[in-house]
Amino acid sequence: MRYMMIRTENLTKMIGHRLIVNNLSLMVEPGETYGFLGPNRSGKTTTIRMLLNYVHPTSGRALVLGLDSRRYDYTIRQQIGYAPADCVLRGRQNGAEMLHNLAKLRRGVDWDYVEELASKFDLDLSTPLDQLNAEGRQKLTLIQAFMHRPELIILDEPSKTLGLQSRQVLYQLIHNARAEGRTTFLSSSILAEMERLCDRVAVIHQGSLIAIERGVQLRNRAMRFIELRFAAPVPPEAFANVANLQNLRIEDNILRCTVCGDPDALIKAASQYRIVDFVSQAPNLEEVFQRYYGVKGYAAS
């Protein structure tokens, strides 16, 4: 029987009088990489915790692998891998001991694959947990999430503390999982990551689902602040009719603007002049949210 890898039905969580997750309904299909995008404190981690039965919903329900997450959490966890965000790992044991202990709780973990993952992430497994920095701890949690090649991988802000090289390794692992028909549920507050990795993205704000976008749609909505420094002053009219430009300002030889979507026209127009410096900056999520979804403010009420 075909089932959704993750399905939530009006999932709601209240802590005291605070509404953390509000009537959230999601459907994640087998084999897709599904993004869960939202600013900090928008309810992403709480939703994941409800999927894993760490936290019980106030109302609604979550089905993972077609099973109720509250009743069958044990069965569900046999087939999933989970990497938490900001996991505090302390203790005198080293990474290898920790992974050995976790592998003992599962059957059939290939230790060669664990070592391969550690070498890809450039992580020394003999380092005691107490001596690992945030990046090292994140790498360790990612290894334990991938080590048994699970059907469903749930990653909560996995790249938050990772360096550039480790991020590439993570992206490659997600791509590989997708190629093997496995599903990834990826929570993040980084838009660029979602554009790059996900087939579909659920956008959450203050605990409520505000949109479900295709990865392509997100790419079209990409917004960049661009600053171009030319060798000599450029005429403003050369850029007046360039597509996808907003807030265009030209002061002497510096051009500043916001590009929404494809930057091709700007680059072609700018290529007529000699460029001495180029700065491209991604906007923060709040600006994107305000522009595209008309919502403001970060914290869940």
Binding site: D73, Y74, T75, P84, C87, R90, L105, R137, T141, Q144
Partner: peptide
Amino acid sequence: EENGELTLWLAQPIA
């Protein structure tokens, strides 16, 4: 719970 072990244990198949 404080040193993060519980988080990872509960990600494994253990009730």
